[in-house]
């Protein structure tokens, strides 16, 4: 298909995906706090309420638990809700509906229903919003069978994966890093999907595999450029989906490079990189490892307010450079 490709921001790409979904599928509707005339806390829904009406772009009360439950109920009975959390942190208020209901309903009922709900979570630090508005909780939800959890890193992917999520019969949780909203990239016009559960090799390399998620993909790519000049040839794998994880792509990459560095913003302990590391340690790639697996994850603290502290909380490019160098030169 020849589709025109334009530069869009990540936020515009999401909006375009939602507009396409609303246009092409009567069952689709949006729910969330201040997504109507306000346009969403991050202006992602924008003017969709004007284009599609308040019946399909529904402002909810500040009721994350109830709202999530309504979305689940609507999904089970035939609609395709896209539920926006104002901040991913507010998932904590709705965990009951997400974890006990959305994720398990199909299983508990022996396959009698599907729960095609999409939930969007603006996530991550870097905005100075401190501890309760900056978390990366994808690992929490990634821990729950029945959910699909994705972290698109580019405008292209977020549009394609959101459309794939809407078409998916199961609950899909999208973690969108807030700092990505304004980043731009090529986005084809019209309908297309990017598969859920498929990682993408953003850069091929021989010496070291960096498995990164979300905004860390960009930091890893930036680091890879510097490392290239130093003769370290880095392969960057954009995991894209936390659950179900694309084990094959990661395993093949590690088999090739013999070195694995996981970079993720969520708290390091028990985070996505922990799972990737363990998965590799259990896999056939183990016998190809020529160095310990290294994880760079978020600090074991809440996200602080002070900008310098905040930066220090999550992996930055120099951290990736240092870790990659030590891995590639065998001093680790």
């Amino acid at each position: 298909m020849d589709q025109a490709v334009r530069e869009l921001s990540y936020a515009q790409a999401i909006q375009e995906a939602m507009a396409i979904a609303l246009e092409t599928d009567e069952r689709v509707f949006l729910m969330g706090e201040d997504i109507g005339v306000y346009g969403g806390a991050f202006q992602v829904t924008g003017d969709l309420v004007e284009r599609f009406g308040a019946d399909r772009v529904i402002d909810t009360p500040i009721s994350e638990l109830g709202g999530a439950g309504v979305a689940v109920g609507a999904a089970v009975t035939g609609l395709r809700p896209i539920f926006e959390f104002q901040f991913s942190d507010f998932a904590t208020l709705a965990m009951e509906q997400i974890v006990n209901q959305a994720a398990k309903m199909r299983y508990m009922l022996g396959g009698a229903v599907s729960v095609p709900v999409v939930m969007r979570f603006p996530a991550g630090s870097g905005t100075g919003a401190a501890a309760q508005h900056s978390q990366s909780l994808e690992a929490w939800l990634g821990h729950v069978p029945g959910l699909k959890v994705i972290q698109p890193a580019t405008p292209h992917d977020v549009k394609g994966m959101l459309l794939a999520a809407v078409a998916d019969p199961d609950p899909v949780m999208i973690f969108e890093h807030k700092l990505l909203y304004k980043t731009k990239g090529p986005v084809p016009e019209g309908y297309y999907t990017v598969p859920i559960g498929k990682a993408e090799i953003r850069r091929e390399g021989r010496d070291l595999t960096i498995v990164a998620t979300s905004i860390m993909v960009h930091k890893a790519l930036e680091a890879a450029k510097t490392l290239e000049a130093e003769g370290i040839d880095v392969e960057v794998v954009d995991l894209r989906t936390v659950r179900p994880m694309d084990k094959e792509t990661v395993i093949e990459s590690v088999k090739k490079t013999s070195r694995l560095l996981c970079v993720y913003e969520g708290v390091k302990t028990l985070g996505v990189g922990a799972e990737v590391s363990a998965m590799i340690a259990e896999s056939e790639a183990f016998d190809f490892l020529d160095a310990p697996i290294v994880r760079l994850g978020g600090a074991e603290t809440p996200i602080p307010y002070n900008p310098e502290l905040e930066k220090a909380t999550v992996p930055q490019v120099p951290d990736i450079l240092a870790a990659a160098r030590s891995l590639a030169t065998g001093s680790r």
Binding site: S258, D287, F288, D290, A291, P292, G330, S331
Partner: peptide
């Protein structure tokens, strides 16, 4: 020894103990 080194050494019939390691 790293897993890769172990595997390569086993394949080559080499004793790991007899190989000087350059890593940490």
């Amino acid at each position: 020894a790293t897993p890769l080194a172990r595997r390569l050494a086993a394949k080559a019939g080499l004793e790991l103990d007899a190989i000087a390691g350059s890593g940490p």
